[in-house]
């Protein structure tokens, strides 16, 4: 898994260094094309994951739902299916995080962010993912929370203890380490189907989206200030010794890079051409702010990847620093928005 993570990081870093567009319309079109490209990759990876979940469920079903019997008879195939699902989950998540800052910031597509990645279960009072998930056996999970982080990540990596079916030596080293387990096939398949369904729905709505200035500004001013919250989630995650069930498959910092990279892309390509026409200094200051923000997150992630251990205090301090930069950026973007008569939605 570590190798997968190391491979993914440069991809995100590259994605987070967008160029500038010559005109606003050209930039908006570039943002939309970029989003659709990664949305398509998200769908493809979700479909692969669904295929692996089907194979996994079929192996379990072939033994009448007896996980122990299935493991004894088809251990290597089950281990392969679990590994494949995890890899495909990481690839799908990577694609989504790269466009999350854009998807979540555009009012007409924001609901997909809650359903796919960021929403709470219906038991919470706020930011609930408004959908129900029907499983292959007909069970309907009412408002179960986001597909990536409330359902599939805890399920695949075993922090959702309720759905662990059997501890199993997946890597065949003679020991059962953390995360070596078989999980509920019914939930895995249902959730994978849900990921395909909702990422396709996002693709449809994103294709229908008519890029416009108001949405571009809204996306940047609503999503950029969320950076502090992500550092908070990083602090609570098991990467920093916390007990959070989510953000265990990979560091939340990688997600932060993707999300903030999306905000930077939206600014550089769709908004900068507007701001720079009448206030080059303001445009330069905002651009510099985004560079600083990305540099701070990148440096922190690099240190983590090299093995640095962060304390909760350091996470809080870094989160505050990132939040300060983000707030400075947003104040300037809002000033530009006011100058250009932009309506901020939300």
């Amino acid at each position: 898994m570590r190798r997968t993570l190391l491979c993914l990081t440069p991809v995100l870093l590259l994605a987070a260094q967008p160029g500038f567009a010559a005109t606003e319309s050209e930039g908006l079109a570039q943002v939309k094309a970029f989003t659709l490209e990664h949305n398509a990759a998200l769908v493809a990876n979700a479909q692969k994951m669904q295929g692996s979940a089907e194979a996994y469920a079929a192996l379990i079903a072939a033994h009448g739902g007896d996980y122990k019997a299935a493991w004894e008879a088809e251990g290597p195939k089950l281990a392969e299916a679990v590994t494949a699902m995890r890899d495909q989950w990481l690839a799908a998540s990577n694609e989504y995080e790269t466009i999350e800052g854009i998807v979540a910031g555009i009012p007409s597509t924001a609901k997909y962010d809650l359903i796919l990645d960021a929403g709470n279960p219906g038991t919470e009072e706020e930011d609930v993912a408004e959908y129900d998930l029907t499983l292959p056996d007909g069970t309907v999970l009412k408002r179960p929370g986001s597909l990536f982080h409330s359902i599939t990540e805890p399920l695949l990596w075993g922090t959702d203890k309720e759905h662990v079916k059997l501890d199993a030596d997946l890597n065949g080293d003679g020991q059962i380490g953390p995360g070596e387990l078989l999980f509920d096939a019914n939930l895995a398949l249902g959730a994978a189907q849900g990921m395909v369904e909702w990422s396709k729905a996002l693709e449809t709505d994103m294709a229908a989206w008519e890029p416009n200035r108001d949405d571009a500004f809204t996306a940047v001013v609503t999503m950029t200030p969320t950076v502090g919250d992500y550092f908070g989630e990083w602090k609570e995650s098991q990467f920093l010794g916390g007990e959070g069930e989510a953000f265990i498959a990979r560091s939340r910092l990688i997600d932060v890079l993707g999300i903030m990279g999306g905000c930077q892309r939206m600014y550089n390509q769709a908004i900068s051409p507007v701001v720079s026409t009448d206030d080059a200094a303001l445009d330069g200051s905002i651009t510099k702010g985004f560079d600083e923000l990305i540099a701070l997150v990148t440096e922190t992630r690099d240190r983590e990847a090299k093995g640095d251990k962060f304390t909760a205090e350091e996470a809080d301090a870094l989160g505050s620093e990132a939040q300060d930069i983000a707030e400075r950026i947003v104040a300037q973007v809002l000033q530009a928005a006011a100058k250009h008569g932009v309506e901020i939605k939300g």
Binding site: V221, D324, E327, V330, L334, A337, I344, G346
Partner: peptide, 8 residues
């Protein structure tokens, strides 16, 4: 404010 347009 929800949208903070004043510089720190």
């Amino acid at each position: 404010n929800r949208f903070v347009s004043v510089q720190p």
